[in-house]
Design a protein around this nucleic acid. Sequence first.
DNA 1: TCTGGGGTCCTAGGACCC
DNA 2: TCTGGGGTCCTAGGACCC
Length: 391
Amino acid sequence: MSNAFLHVDLDAFFASVEQLDHPEYRGKPVIVGGLPGDRRSVVSTCSYEARKYGVHSAMPTSKAFQLCPSGIFLHGRMKRYHEMSYKVMSIFREFSPDVQQMSVDEAFIDLTGTEKLFGPPENTAMLIKKRVREETGLTVSAGLASNKYIAKIASGISKPDGFFHVKEGDEEAFMLSLPLDKLWGAGSKTRQRLNSYGYFTIADIHKASVTALSSLFGNHTGEFLYNAVRGIDTENFSTEAKSRSISAEQTFPFDLTDLYIIETELLELSYDVFFRLLKENCNGKTVQVKIRYDDFSTVTVSGTYPRNVSTSDDLFEKACALLRKKHDATRGIRLLGIAVQNLEDGIDDAQGELFDFGENKKKAVEKALYSMQKKDSSLHVRKARNFIKKP
DNA sequence: TCTGGGGTCCTAGGACCC
DNA sequence: TCTGGGGTCCTAGGACCC
């Protein structure tokens, strides 16, 4: 029995949901992300009508507005998208017990051995597309192949509302037929470097030895490239448990220079991150602070402590100390971020009991706040300091 | 045109220990 | 006085993806 992986990807997902909920947007360029007036915002997703104007994801909103002034610019409604995503994923799960959701809008469905129930996988793929369209009004693109890597690329080239099947044995020829920018996992930096070494096509890379590629790009990337152009999956989408982190970051409309305001923003981020730690019932000992200066250069500073983060105040104090280590006060700050890394499940830190400087009380207060927020999601608890006027 | 936010993984170098 | 080799942990930065 050969493997059959289906990769399914919702087309222009956020924009399509907006067109579904607002019939008057259908057939028009819809651009989800920032509004034209929002400083320092980017396009999250745009409809295919908007793509005709050259608009695409990650483009600054200001540029999108120049290209497409008649576009319908909208802020995202993440709650709604997650709701729709859940519906779609539920349909997938009717066709296989093994659905690996990769993000809000895509998943791998393992159709290996489902022939007896649903027929050949290519028929199942069409059935899934039909079910999603009928039950949600959304379209998906699907790729079917003997491994996840090829399935992922196949769904990408079939967009929108398409289906592409790479038959077993055709993987290598399929890869060789693609332009370099379809090589998933090699982004713009790697493509630039490939070009600078004289590799302009997938076939060019195919001619190179693994030794040559490894000496140019390092062992990992070298082996990845060598295998990818042959259609060999190198476990890019493994289901193994990963090291986790929780982070929050904020880009400011105007650069920050005042230390009190900078620390107030860190306090806000500490709250965000700590409450998410509580929500996900995990914790960690490593804290990272990220600073992006006005010239877009970015630095990080991190510390690993003997004990888990105990409260949002604890996280805040650690973040301030880390910031002080690295912060160049002569430069404006456009972004601040805080992350807790190397998370482990469970929030209780037994050692805490031995060195209690009122931390357990604080922790209890914050847990109480958390459960209040859980009951009433409109409730937003913030320290008074976060209500000061921002410049 | 002026660049979001949330993640994962890899690399290289240094510290430290045996 | 000069100097092994391996292993692990930590840090900073970078690439990539959605």
